[in-house]
């Protein structure tokens, strides 16, 4: 896989304040990269710098090797983007809007426009004025607008804002499809964790203009070990059994619940041992850490550090 978008030590200073502080990351071909952070963390600012809407104070952003600062036309021709809400010319029809944008890139045929319209499922209403569209339809038109020129990079800023669950799902399906089938590098920003978890391959968490961490969403906990919660009537004794059998792993008692990390194969052994010891087992559950847990973990750690 090759890196399509490279963000190199980018800093943005507005009125002597550092809005973005030496940010660096890369987005690969065919990957959905989530850009996650609380409101005001600098997500939209970063995205606006990538598409050249605002200037870069220090550092550089390269798209397929072309700098957006010195070689804007070359760099941006591979990019399709929605920045915040996709605002369209309301007094024109959806088709006229697309035609307008099509004329600004090279070699987009009318067939290509209709093909894109069909892809986003707007064929029936495309000749109606945009002012009659619902928010979901506008979002679809926005998506069509950035797919017209078959970009290598797709940038969606808060794409699910204000959409109903069906609309959110639709966007999500489209995004995954475009990354899988057309090999686009997709950058999605959001403050909705559950959303990102379902859509992205990797997530970068940004806070106060700094990139705190980049994590794979479906990260396997190291060595295949998983977290378990086990309800028993004598947790302390159960913990001794754990210490005897798998001393390399740590266990913790919370009320009547034993929390431990173990390999899958260890569980039946433990159960036999507990039954042998006369401990009653009520519940064994594998717990996966959600992105939300990790997000809160990371952001609170950050706060404590300050």
């Amino acid at each position: 896989m090759k890196a399509v978008v490279k963000i190199e030590n980018v800093t943005k200073i507005i009125k002597k304040r550092k809005i973005i502080d030496s940010l660096s990351f890369e987005v690969m071909e065919g990957e959905v990269f989530g850009f996650l952070g609380p409101n005001g963390a600098g997500k939209t600012t970063t995205i606006r710098m990538i598409v050249g809407l605002i200037g870069i104070s220090e550092g550089d952003i390269k798209i397929l090797g072309n700098s957006v600062q010195t070689n804007f036309e070359k760099a941006i021709q591979h990019v399709g983007a929605i920045v915040e809400n996709p605002e369209m010319y309301k007094f024109m029809s959806g088709y006229q809007n697309l035609l307008h944008y099509a004329k600004m890139s090279e070699g987009i045929t009318k067939e290509k426009i209709m093909e894109t319209v069909e892809f986003v499922g707007l064929t029936e209403r495309i000749h109606d004025k945009v002012k009659t569209y619902s928010l979901g339809m506008r979002q679809r038109l926005g998506l069509a607008q950035c797919l017209l020129h078959d970009p290598k990079v797709l940038i969606l800023d808060e794409p699910t804002n204000g959409l109903d669950p069906a609309g959110i799902r639709e966007i999500r399906d489209h995004v995954r499809k475009l990354a899988r089938e057309r090999g686009m590098a997709v950058i999605v920003s959001s403050h909705l964790l559950s959303e990102m978890e379902m859509m992205c391959d990797r997530v970068g968490i940004i806070q106060k203009g700094k990139l705190i961490t980049i994590q794979s969403v479906h990260e396997q906990v190291e060595g295949g070990a998983k977290e378990y919660e086990i309800d028993v009537d004598h947790p302390t004794e159960a913990m001794f059994a754990v210490n005897r059998l798998i001393p390399q792993q740590q266990a913790e008692v919370k009320g009547n619940t034993l929390m431990l990390r173990a390999q899958k194969e260890d569980i039946p052994l433990l159960v036999k041992e507990w039954v042998h010891d006369g401990i009653n087992i009520y519940r064994i559950q594998e717990t996966t850490k959600t992105l939300e847990d990790r997000f809160l973990e990371v952001t609170t750690l950050q706060k404590e550090a300050e």
Binding site: V51, F72, E73, I76, Q77, V83, M104, S105, E106
Partner: peptide
């Protein structure tokens, strides 16, 4: 209209 954003992210 807010359309300036979509207008300026073209290869022009």
């Amino acid at each position: 209209w807010g359309t300036i954003k979509l207008l300026l992210i073209r290869p022009i």
